[in-house]
Design a protein around this nucleic acid. Structure first.
Lengths: 107, 107
DNA sequence: AGTTTATATGATAATAGATTCATATGATAT
DNA sequence: ATATCATATGAATCTATTATCATATAAACT
């Protein structure tokens, strides 16, 4: 039995839904409903995804009245996104046919 | 349709097999067979995993006679592992019950 | 208290990903 | 050329993760 943290870490972001949420939150904090509407995902889908992201320390949530405000954890996300952007740019440009693609270009 | 690179990036490392291989290769380059024997994994399992890691630019392979020598791509792996180590240490220590765990402690 | 709005949770269904097995390719040596 | 060793590939199976649906909790307001 190994410490599962590393797996959990990567898994937390290895799908489109969570990546889109990260991308969206990179523009600013939002409530679950806002994310849900903006991305066209079901509420519970977003909630499950945010829980996973929160459990791995990528986002933080704070209650604001009836709603929850979620925002990226900048300490990890800023250097991580920067690193990934650079790497993805280098290694995947040709594969996906998108040149100069950036995180924020994702739909 | 979105650029799948980010997903692919994280997915490439989101399982125990690939993480163990990365951990092992962090000590130095190895051939497929060596990895296979040292980790007790099947040859084809290791090969599939290394292919995924290679396709995402985390390792490079170079032929050495009959065998292939695989090694980590230091440009991405050194800063990435450092970042992850720090983050995992911070956020998951309590969850997995291992204090001060490091990448190299994985079995 | 009851109603509405917002989010979370749990169980099942659906999907994506990994592992295995059999086999193919590639390199070296005889 | 063929035998052997090393790695890669493809398809089928197995497993893990995600999405959905129904429902529960939580806060605010009347």
């Amino acid at each position: 039995m190994i410490c599962k943290s590393y797996k959990s870490f990567f898994n937390a972001m290895a799908d489109e839904c969570k990546l889109s949420i990260i991308n969206l939150l990179s523009k600013g904090p939002l409530a679950v409903n806002d994310v849900s509407r903006k991305l066209g995902y079901e509420q519970s889908r977003v909630s499950h995804a945010l829980t996973a992201l929160k459990d791995n320390g990528f986002v933080v949530g704070s209650r604001n009245g009836k709603s929850m405000q979620y925002s990226l954890e900048p300490k990890i996300m800023v250097p991580l996104l920067k690193l990934i952007d650079r790497h993805v740019e280098t290694y995947h440009r040709s594969k996906c046919g998108c040149r100069g693609v950036r995180w924020r270009d994702m739909k």
